[in-house]
Amino acid sequence: MTVKMSARHVSAYYGDLRALDDVSIDIDTQHVTALIGPSGCGKSTLLRLLNRMNDAVPGARVEGSIELDGQDIHARDMDVVELRARVGMVFQKPNPFPKSIYDNVAYGPRIHGLARGRGELDAVVETSLRRAGLWDEVKDRLDDRGTALSGGQQQRLCIARALAVDPEVILMDEPCSALDPIATARIEELIGALRGRYAIAIVTHNMQQAARVSQRTAFFYAGRLVEYGDTSDIFTNPRATSTKDYITGRYG
């Protein structure tokens, strides 16, 4: 098993508030890692630390180390632009740009100069849309606005947009919370199909979803990583009582 990203003794603060307390966790390419826990437990904070999206949050501070392929992402010679290109992110609410479907997907390749010429760019867009399972639905209307698609299609467009820069890690922050059950099922299928090619971490509030899409599950509570292991173990045989209470629906 090759570790793609690893966090060691990571604590995060927003001003005086400690959001994460001494968390160590590995993410790899073979498994989808689900981050679960009640609201405010720090799981989204951890996700946003992994591609340094919290840099811009005023008062946010990190301790400990986070590595991508053994390289410290907070190191002086680490370019945050490169980091974010290698570690893509899909957000809670679908957020396509108010541009055409094509331009949405082509956005990343264009700014990073990944495609030479229109033909290559077309190919990247098609591949990304195919991988996101959206190609057949939009291939005849690539010039339509991305915002005109349905919620589920928008979210798959956002996934295609993230895939287009060919990242190594994909972080998903509750990607289905704004979607209906059918659109959710499509995204879950898609996550299964992407496993193995990308290291995937997904934050979810939905226990069944975590059980369906992930092989590894991390349970967070009050900023601490309470339990981390195989999803099947966590759901059938949780060691900590708080994990058991949470996954059986006592709270959260």
């Binding site: 591609n51 999206m53 811009a56 632009v81 490169e82 980091l83 974010r84 290109a85 290698r86 893509g88 992110m89 957000f91 609410k93 957020n95 396509p96 740009f97 108010p98 956005y107 990343g108 700014i111 990073h112 956002c158 947009r161 993230a162 820069v165």
Partner: peptide, 17 residues
């Protein structure tokens, strides 16, 4: 919406881009 800004930054775009 700040989601637009975050989406762009998360793709590795610089603030200027």
């Amino acid at each position: 919406p700040s989601a637009m800004r975050e989406a762009s930054l998360a793709l590795g775009a610089t603030p200027a881009e």
